[in-house]
């Protein structure tokens, strides 16, 4: 993941794929998301960065309505997110999600994990789905583990399976919430490589991560959050070399020390 200098800039003339308008959310008294406005274009890769508790995960999870919002509007490909129910389920199928803790289905094999969405949700035939699932497992480099259970895999392998599981739904956008934070250092690269590959293939991605290497390589934009607000929005280069706000400077100072 070194030779990527020029990512095609995403097609901004097309309507935005994800759009948040004046979004507010509270957890009790805690105002976790404060007047968030965010547009994500087709093919764009947005990295969300910020101190712990700033609302990054919450922001990410509102996009497929795992967290409902209290105010404002979120649209996906022009459609507002519906209330809980069948309609929402249909929309969620279009949004892939990768969690920090992988969340693979513990009672299913790797292959079944990847096949479950397409067969149960999209009702596609098992043999065709299986073929596609094996291709995806190959793409993320875990095809040899297809018949094992998640607990038998390393963290890095599990996370790559989780990415394959999300891709199997052929989503329009992929959400990643700290996909490498639960991994041992030597496994981080194998997951990031898969993600860089996805970005290169034009996948629209929202990635909560502190991996600056990934942000510089694959992101079009970095969003810096603090205390529920978007404080800064910049290209990765600009953000990391020349942060504007004191809070971003302070934050970068802290993570760069390590």
């Amino acid at each position: 993941m070194s030779d990527v200098q020029t990512r095609d800039s995403p097609d901004r003339t097309d309507s935005n794929l994800v759009s948040l308008r004046q979004v507010d959310k509270w957890f009790g008294d805690l105002h976790v998301l404060q007047d968030i406005n965010l547009d994500i274009a087709r093919g764009e890769v947005v990295v969300v960065i910020g101190p712990s508790g700033s609302g990054k995960s919450t922001l990410c999870r509102t996009i497929n309505r795992l967290e409902p919002i209290d105010k404002g509007e979120i649209t996906l490909d022009g459609q507002p997110l519906p209330q809980e129910g069948k309609e929402l389920a249909r929309l969620r199928a279009e949004v892939g999600m990768v969690f920090q803790s992988f969340n693979l289905f513990a009672h299913k094999t790797v292959l079944d994990n990847v096949m479950l969405g397409p067969t149960k949700v999209r009702k596609r035939g098992a043999s065709e789905v299986k073929q596609q699932a094996m291709q995806l497992l190959e793409r993320v480099g875990v095809e040899a583990q297809a018949n094992k259970y998640p607990a038998q895999l390393s963290g890095g392998q599990q996370q790559r399976v989780a990415i394959a599981r999300a891709l199997a739904m052929q989503p329009k956008v992929m959400l990643f919430d700290e996909p490498t934070s639960a991994l041992d250092p030597e496994m981080i690269a194998e997951v990031l490589d898969v993600m860089v590959g996805l970005a290169r293939d034009g996948m629209t991605m929202v990635v909560v991560t502190h991996e600056m290497g990934f942000a510089r390589t694959a992101a079009n934009r970095v969003i810096f959050m603090d205390e529920g607000k978007i404080v800064e929005e910049e290209t990765p280069e600009e953000f990391f070399t020349n942060p504007k706000s004191d809070r971003a400077k302070d934050f970068l100072g802290k993570i760069l020390k390590h």
Binding site: A89, R90, R92, A93, N103, A106, K120, M169
Partner: peptide, 20 residues
């Protein structure tokens, strides 16, 4: 996380209950 993963794949409440 198991239920969240199921829901984020687009499973309905019933599907997530019965399969996951």
């Amino acid at each position: 996380g198991q239920a969240e993963a199921a829901r984020s794949l687009g499973m309905t409440f019933g599907q997530s209950m019965s399969t996951v």
